[in-house]
Amino acid sequence: MSDFSQRFLFDDSDVRGELVALDASYRHVLAKHAYPEPVAQLLGEMLAAAALLVGTLKFDGLLVLQARSAGAVPLLMVECSSERELRGIARYHAEQIAAGSGLHELMPDGTLTMTVEPARGQRYQGIVPLEGSNLADCLSSYFATSEQLPTRFWLNADGQRARGLLLQQLPADRLQDSEARAANWEHVVTLAGTLSTEELLGLDNETLLHRLYHEEALRLFEPRALQFRCSCSRDRSARALISLGQADVEQLLAEHGGEVVIDCQFCNQRYAFDAADVAQLFAGAGVQPPSDTRH
Rank of each mutant, 00 (worst) to 15 (best):
W154K: 08
V64R: 06
T145P: 02
Q148C: 08
L218S: 11
I89A: 06
R174S: 12
Q66I: 01
V15W: 09
A94I: 09
L139M: 11
L218K: 12
Y271N: 01
P171K: 13
L22R: 09
D173N: 14
R236V: 05
H214P: 11
T145Y: 02
I89W: 00
H104F: 00
R219D: 15
P290S: 14
Y26C: 02
E179A: 09
L63F: 03
S146L: 04
T194L: 06
S233E: 03
L281N: 10
L281V: 13
A49E: 07
D158A: 05
L166C: 13
G164W: 05
L208W: 11
H28G: 00
D263T: 11
Q176F: 10
L130Y: 06
M77G: 04
A285I: 03
L76S: 01
V128D: 10
T145E: 09
S82P: 04
D292C: 04
Y142Q: 04
R219Y: 10
D158H: 00
I262L: 12
T145G: 13
L203D: 14
L170P: 13
L19T: 12
G17K: 05
L42Q: 05
W154R: 11
A144V: 01
G126F: 00
E131L: 06
G257Y: 08
Q269D: 05
F59H: 08
L170V: 15
A276P: 01
S101N: 03
D177S: 13
L195E: 14
A217E: 06
D235E: 14
E18G: 06
H214D: 15
V78S: 06
L165C: 13
L220P: 10
T115E: 15
A276I: 06
Q66P: 00
L86D: 00
N134G: 14
E250M: 04
D235V: 11
K58V: 05
A49T: 13
M1H: 13
E83P: 07
G61W: 01
Y92T: 00
R219E: 15
G245Q: 07
R236Y: 05
W185G: 13
A238E: 09
W185N: 14
A40T: 10
R236A: 14
P289V: 02
Q125D: 07
Q176W: 06
S82N: 03
G258E: 07
K32A: 08
P36A: 02
G193F: 02
R7Q: 14
S133C: 01
D11M: 01
V54L: 03
R236M: 07
Q96A: 02
L9H: 15
F266C: 03
Q280E: 07
L9Y: 13
Q176T: 14
A283V: 02
A285D: 01
T197E: 13
E79F: 04
Q6C: 12
V73K: 02
V20K: 07
E250T: 02
S178V: 12
D173R: 12
R7I: 10
A50Q: 10
S5Q: 01
F273R: 03
L195A: 11
Q265K: 09
W154A: 11
A217K: 12
L201G: 05
Y35P: 05
F10T: 06
E105T: 00
S237K: 03
R123L: 15
G121R: 06
F273H: 05
L165D: 12
P38F: 00
L226E: 08
A183M: 14
V54Q: 11
A67E: 09
F266T: 04
E85R: 11
